[in-house]
């Protein structure tokens, strides 16, 4: 069994809850485990939020393309945008997980979540567009 969800949304933060809702609906239809759904919805929100905040364009000036493919053994998430080149998996700062509350820096956590929660992550720049791929195995 396999199902694919394709979405194109303007690069605005307010669009992202609708994306989460659509992905959760796919997860229900495809009977994802609760932790798989959480990992995918969270990772997609973190990557898309980075695109909106750091892509460089005015909010609403471009589109983010999202494709989620669910099969029996894995869920594959692809995100494409035409913002400035940015590899979140290598260029985003690493959070210091051992810092005390006073020293702990705000931010840097989103990409860390994606790296920990997803089984595979990759980035490429193709034809002037960013392409992020994330894979979560279902068992």
């Amino acid at each position: 069994m396999s199902a694919t969800l394709q979405l194109r949304v303007p690069n605005r933060i307010e669009e992202l809850p609708g994306v989460s809702e659509a992905v959760e609906a796919l997860g229900q239809e495809e009977r994802w485990a609760q932790d798989v759904t959480y990992a995918i919805v969270l990772s997609l929100e973190e990557v898309a939020t980075n695109v909106v905040r750091h892509g460089g364009g005015e909010p609403g000036s471009s589109e983010i393309e999202i494709e989620v493919t669910s099969s029996d053994d894995e869920v594959r998430v692809e995100v494409r945008d035409d913002g400035r080149a940015f590899d979140p998996f290598h260029e985003a700062p690493e959070p210091d997980l051992d810092a005390a509350v006073e020293e702990r820096q705000i931010g840097g956590l989103g990409v860390h979540f994606v790296k920990v929660l997803m089984d595979e992550t990759s980035y490429s720049r193709e034809g002037g567009r960013n392409h992020v791929t994330m894979v979560k195995r279902r068992s």
Partner: peptide
């Protein structure tokens, strides 16, 4: 039901202010 890094950032900010 759900929290992402944006929400954790707020929890950390509040913890710092209270500290």
């Amino acid at each position: 039901a759900y929290i992402s890094s944006a929400g954790l950032r707020v929890v950390l900010l509040v913890a710092k202010t209270l500290g």
